[in-house]
């Protein structure tokens, strides 16, 4: 089976890209494919706690992130320097299990996968 890495680099509510990236990850997991998610650059904003989307207009992205584990996506990877650069408090996030990676570990993660889905 080919391994897929979804790299999600955009913030959650400004455009639909982050949501549609997560939907692709959920679909891959539902089809029992080997899929991992890496959040970096503005993509780390998806992890922010206390997201309060406008009821009836915006759907919660944090809820989709939380659904990943249920679909069998055990690990969400995130790029630590991206969070640090943005002053994101990594102690208070909307999901619990995140594996933080430095630059070298991101390079390693990319080289360990057969395909990249770039969002």
């Amino acid at each position: 089976m080919k391994s897929l890495l979804c790299i999600s680099r955009h913030s959650p509510y400004g455009t639909a890209i982050a949501r549609e990236a997560l939907e692709a990850v959920l679909a891959a997991a539902a089809f029992e494919q080997n899929i991992a998610l890496l959040l970096m650059d503005d993509g780390v904003w998806q992890l922010k706690d206390q997201q309060q989307p406008i009821a009836g207009i915006q759907k919660s992205l944090a809820r989709n992130l939380n659904a990943l584990e249920m679909f069998g996506v055990d690990t969400v990877y995130a790029h630590q320097p991206s969070a640090q650069k943005r002053g994101l408090n990594t102690a208070e996030l909307c999901i619990e299990s995140i594996e933080w990676l430095d630059d070298d570990q991101v390079r390693q993660l990319i080289s360990n996968h057969d395909h990249l889905l770039s969002f």
């Binding site: 990319i110 996968h113 057969d114 770039s118």
Partner: peptide
């Protein structure tokens, strides 16, 4: 190259 990463 094995993989292609598109940065946009």
């Amino acid at each position: 190259h094995k993989t292609i990463q598109s940065w946009y």
